[in-house]
Nucleic acid binder design. Structure first.
Lengths: 132, 132
DNA sequence: AACAGTGTGTAATAATATAACAAATAACAA
DNA sequence: TTGTTATTTGTTATATTATTACACACTGTT
């Protein structure tokens, strides 16, 4: 049996909100939106976010300080993440490409480091914004 | 002739500091260290950092909110960056691997997006920390 | 000189994130 | 059941990271 099979109340509230969102959410925007549900302080949100990231239910878009729900159902942990980010409309999509993930998971250089995790962010213009 | 051939005084002061450092520097640590040189306010540091990042002299380690000098002499702009980060000692190294950069620069998926930039961060344990 | 573009200095403030502590709850063995 | 440990919660305060706004100065044009 895995540990942390069920989410706590606060974690579930935060996850529900992030999952319903079509765009990355910032921590304080989450806070504002869950205040009616009883989460009053930043720390309550950050603690829930930390846990959700740890177990792979959500990912942090580092370049944007924002959070998105994991769209990859097989993703139990956030060990190998890749995103595309439109620099115009800020749309973020999780990239699910097995070739890419295989390539990066197996990547080795001569540094002697053993990599167990990576995060990749691609930037560009999405289809819509390209045609403007 | 390229534009912005020379750095301004503030930019040079910040760049010198970052280049001398053996580890990523945080913005406010930079501020503290350049106050004797006359840069008194955060904004002076952030403006210099923004410009230096833009022209590729330094890179931002997004997951750490810290800055490192570019070690790749041919790197004029920060369009394609990859780093290895030790999760124990926080040592950060810029990865300079032509196969990797070629693979990522040419990466395409079926999203219709045209990528013009990426940032990749690998995490793990460095040689030293692995053997502890 | 007038201008445009860029950089500067300064103060104030916004946005993001964590520390510290006490209390409540869950997990589970003695 | 009790004791023990770990986790989660609630709360206040504070630390850290980053930007807005505005007046002015410098540089290179036209």
């Amino acid at each position: 049996m895995e540990k942390q099979q069920y989410l706590t109340k606060n974690q579930q509230i935060v996850l529900d909100l992030v999952e319903k969102s079509s765009e990355p959410l910032k921590a304080y925007s989450i806070l504002f939106n869950v205040q009616k549900k009883g989460l009053k302080a930043p720390l309550q949100v950050y603690r829930a976010l930390d846990k959700l990231v740890e177990i792979g239910k959500i990912h942090k878009i580092e370049s944007r300080n924002a959070f998105v729900a994991c769209k990859n159902s097989s993703c139990q942990v956030s060990k190998a993440t890749a995103f595309s980010i439109c620099e115009s409309c800020e749309k973020v999509t999780e990239i699910n490409n097995s070739k890419l993930s295989k390539y990066l998971t197996n990547f080795e250089d001569n540094s002697g480091m053993k990599y167990n995790k990576y995060n990749l962010e691609f930037f560009g213009l999405c289809k819509k914004c390209k045609n403007k």
